[in-house]
Structure formats: structure tokens, C-alpha cells
């Protein structure tokens, strides 16, 4: 992992503190002074202790220029997720159990571990695919209805739309 500079770390600390504090506010859903003070103290401690686990560029996607792509990604993701649910429901209900499972591998252009993790998670929640492992640039995917075993073609079917947006967000 890259060694980040001190100022980046301070920036990072404040961002994760703010995020944790927002979660706290939403959970307690009150603005009573006691609650808010305890929340501020607790979330600061948590942010301090977890700082070294979230070392690299986790929050870079919050930059203003990338926000459009983040929102686009979330919308595409939600649509794909709902499609995935109906797809699996259809396969489960139909009496003949229309599956043709297999494991394929695809190659991703994303470089950082964080971006790969987001891609793998999105693949898992989209129709008929479940990411099994990540080795270097390759993601191994269990596909409930295999159409192509060729990595290039499989990539086009499974991951292309997501990766296009993720490249804009992370690289």
C-alpha cells in the first residue's frame, strides 16, 4: 500500500469523522445536545483508530467533477439490482429450472484494489453473476447462465457498463 502524506491523512481523518458523525445523527435522529456531544466524541475516536485501515484514496470519488458519475453509477446499479432480483425469482419459480451454470474469467482495466472491490461487488449484485475471486487483473465469476466462455465476450456481457463509469470515477 502507498505511504500517504501527512496532510492527506489529516484530510482523510476529517472526512471519515464527518461521515461517521452523519451516520450517528441519522441513527439517533435527535439534536439533543448530550447526544450530539457523545456522538462527536465517539465518532472521533472511531475515525482515529480506523485511520490506518483506510489509508489510500478512499474518498477521492467525492471530488466535485466526479459527483455526476457517482450519481449515474448509483442509478445504474439500482436498476441492475432490481433486474437481478426479478431474474433470479423467475429462474427459481419456473418448473424446469432454466440454468446453465459455469465459471468464467474476465479482465479488468481498473488498477486500485478499492476500485476492483467496488466492481466485484457490483458484479455480484447484477443479474446471474457472482464474483468468486480476484487474482491480479482477473475476476473469476460464477455465471448462472453462461453465454460466452471467452474472456473478452464475457467481459462485454457482464462488466462493461460498470467499468466505464468506474474508470471515470477512480482513475
Amino acid at each position: 500500500m502507498k505511504e500517504s502524506t501527512f496532510s492527506a491523512k489529516v484530510m482523510h481523518f476529517f472526512l471519515s469523522w464527518a461521515l461517521l458523525f452523519l451516520v450517528w445523527l441519522a441513527f439517533t435522529s435527535t439534536l439533543e445536545i448530550q447526544e450530539v456531544l457523545v456522538g462527536a466524541a465517539t465518532t472521533m475516536l472511531v475515525a482515529l483508530f480506523t485511520l490506518r485501515f483506510f489509508d489510500c484514496c478512499t474518498f477521492s470519488f467525492l471530488a466535485p467533477g466526479k459527483l455526476y458519475n457517482v450519481i449515474k453509477y448509483i442509478i445504474v446499479f439500482i436498476i441492475e439490482m432490481i433486474k437481478a432480483n426479478f431474474d433470479v425469482a423467475r429462474r427459481v419459480i419456473s418448473p424446469s429450472l432454466p440454468i446453465n451454470p459455469g465459471i468464467v474469467k474476465i479482465r479488468t482495466k481498473l488498477k486500485t484494489n478499492y476500485a476492483k472491490m467496488v466492481l466485484a461487488n457490483s458484479i455480484t449484485l447484477t443479474p446471474g453473476t457472482l464474483s468468486v475471486d480476484i487474482v491480479d487483473d482477473y475476476i473469476y465469476i460464477h455465471w448462472i447462465d453462461v453465454k460466452n466462455t471467452d474472456p473478452e465476450q464475457a467481459f462485454k456481457d457482464i462488466a462493461e457498463t460498470f467499468e466505464k463509469i468506474l474508470l471515470k470515477i477512480f482513475e
Binding site: 431474474d87 433470479v88 427459481v92 446471474g128 457472482l130
Partner: peptide, 26 residues
Amino acid sequence: LGALGIYRMPDVYNRLQAGTKATTLG
């Protein structure tokens, strides 16, 4: 439907497919 999928699918990977997706939206 997720539970039914876990019952009907043939192996662990397919069961995971049903178990993950149907239960997220559910």
C-alpha cells in the same frame, strides 16, 4: 423466493446466487 431458491438449486454456487440476490431486494 430466496429460500425456495436455496432449496431448488443444485449446488452451493447456484444457491448463493439465489440466496444473495433475492434477499437483497427482499
